[in-house]
């Protein structure tokens, strides 16, 4: 494992911790898209079907379990917790995420590394992850204001993608048989989706002001 991949995993982990902190400390999930969170839970559940069939490392196994558990915890909290649920911006979170699931599944049936149950769901999870941030970005766009923790959550999530791209570049040059264009192209698409958000994040950071998105 190289430093970029590790930095990517860590920023991914930090993003989830920031999200849990926000929900736990403020007892509020305003600004957070339940649809994006449900998509992430689906992403991890379908990608880590290999949890019991392929062992990579203790690190991988623990991280997979953490990602599955934390994504389910966020969804459960937003749906079931009496106080948290009340702060959910339901009227702003209207992105039709079922289309993203359908599109990703069709693409996974057509473009995969092998036409097997596990490989199709692996490809599905990669495509869905690339698109899963869309309901979240649309919600932020609609509400205009972005509170600090929500902004940091999305920032770390974007940093994770950026580090993974550096990781693939590094692996491309250092490993003999590194070719995983499905993950690379999807990862690139996902990072491009963040570009707009990053722009406004850095502007607010530079001006030391609360982050605001244009209407």
């Amino acid at each position: 494992m190289n430093i970029f991949r590790f930095a990517g995993d860590m920023t991914h982990l930090i993003s989830i911790l920031v999200l849990l902190l926000k929900i736990y400390a403020t007892k509020s999930c305003s600004g957070i898209s339940l649809k994006t969170q449900e998509l992430y839970a689906l992403v991890f559940l379908t990608r880590y079907l290999d949890l019991f069939t392929d062992f990579i490392s203790v690190y991988n196994t623990i991280m997979k379990l953490v990602f599955i558990a934390s994504s389910l915890a966020v969804v459960c909290c937003m749906r079931m917790h009496r106080v948290v649920r009340r702060s959910y911006d339901k009227d702003l979170d209207t992105f039709r995420h079922y289309f993203l699931i359908l599109a990703s599944f069709v693409l996974a049936l057509l473009v995969n590394e092998k036409f097997t149950f596990q490989e199709i769901f692996w490809a599905f999870s990669i495509y869905l992850e690339a698109l899963a941030i869309l309901p979240q970005l649309v919600l932020l766009q609609r509400s205009g204001n972005v509170d600090n923790l929500t902004g940091q959550y999305v920032f770390f999530l974007g940093a994770y993608r950026a580090f993974y791209i550096l990781n693939w570049i590094y692996r491309y040059f250092t490993e003999q048989h590194f070719s995983r264009w499905i993950a690379c192209v999807s990862g690139l698409v996902q990072t491009v989706l963040y570009a707009d958000f990053f722009y406004y994040y850095f502007i607010s950071w530079k001006n030391n002001a609360k982050m605001q998105l244009p209407a």
Partner: peptide
């Protein structure tokens, strides 16, 4: 022979 690509990333 080229090693098969396993999904070793998260």
């Amino acid at each position: 022979s080229p090693k098969e690509n396993v999904h070793d990333e998260l």
